[in-house]
């Protein structure tokens, strides 16, 4: 729209103020992370990397990083395999069936986390998955599948359905068609899906708190403890590391999307 005079720069200025309100607060964790104190506080002169040393040398923090990485990698592989197959299925089956199954598959994303947490806690205790590695991986897989399906479905919607028909009419089985024709064409969508799934698992806290207690202690769980007790400044060091990784990831994603021909904004 065509706004002239004062209105246009003013709206842009307002937008920038809001954007800075979104971006800047995270940065306050930096001075706290480099503070030479046993408490969460701002540095009084002396800066020190000791909280980063704690993060990367203490056994509890290292084991939490390992737990989070392991769980996230395993649930990403599972969610991407199951979710991609499901998305391709949804793309090809009759509309009513796709609608029904699609709605069911989105449930873990839509349901409030605390509701999923209570339900899974009881079920995991009942079938012996509570506080096991497999239990946490399965819970995260279920929570990540909807994101995988959405990412792959988006990719499939840009694929010409006649490719699949051509392969099938030449005698390929659905599995062969999937491997040789469909997958190569949606690999960007599958890669996006894997990133989503990894982040869902890596960040998950509410369900994790309910389905695990000691055997699996993920990084968000340890951060939660550190923030709630408000005594462990190592969480600020974690925050700085996560922020740097997030910023790098977003920059990389923007660069990649600029290099590809623009399809969607």
């Amino acid at each position: 729209m065509d706004l002239r005079g004062w209105a246009r720069p003013m709206i842009f200025a307002v937008a920038w103020v809001i954007a800075l309100f979104l971006l800047l607060p995270g940065l306050v964790t930096i001075p706290v992370a480099f503070n030479d104190s046993r408490f969460i506080a701002l540095p009084q002169g002396a800066w020190s990397p000791r909280h980063f040393e704690t993060l990367f040398t203490s056994a509890p923090w290292l084991s939490s990083i390992a737990d989070s990485l392991g769980v996230a990698l395993a649930s990403t592989v599972l969610a991407v395999c199951l979710g991609t197959a499901c998305a391709v299925g949804l793309w090809r089956v009759r509309p009513w069936l796709a609608g029904l199954v699609g709605a069911i598959m989105l449930a873990p994303m839509i349901f409030p986390p605390i509701v999923s947490a209570l339900a899974l806690y009881r079920a995991w205790v009942a079938i012996g998955l509570y506080d096991t590695w497999a239990g946490v991986v399965l819970a995260h897989t279920i929570l990540a599948i909807p994101y995988v399906i959405i990412a792959v479905t988006t990719s499939l919607s840009m694929l010409d359905a006649r490719l699949e028909q051509a392969a099938r009419s030449l005698g390929a089985t659905p599995l062969r068609t999937m491997i040789d024709v469909i997958l190569p064409n949606i690999r960007t969508g599958v890669a996006t899906a894997a990133v989503f799934a990894f982040i869902v698992s890596w960040d998950e806290i509410v369900v994790t708190m309910f389905v695990s207690s000691r055997a699996v202690y993920t990084l968000p769980r340890r951060m939660w403890d550190g923030i709630r007790e408000s005594v462990d400044p190592t969480v600020a060091a974690v925050a700085v590391v996560l922020m740097a990784l997030t910023a790098l990831g977003v920059l990389a994603a923007i660069v990649v999307s600029l290099r590809r021909p623009a399809r969607n904004p």
């Binding site: 607060p25 995270g26 306050v28 960040d203 923030i227 600020a236 996560l242 997030t246 910023a247 990831g249």
Partner: peptide, 19 residues
């Protein structure tokens, strides 16, 4: 500026506001 906080861990954001 919108995407970085969007992808940032909810715990990091809550910690930042607490500080």
């Amino acid at each position: 500026c919108v995407l970085v906080p969007f992808w940032l861990s909810v715990l990091v954001r809550a910690l930042a506001w607490l500080i």
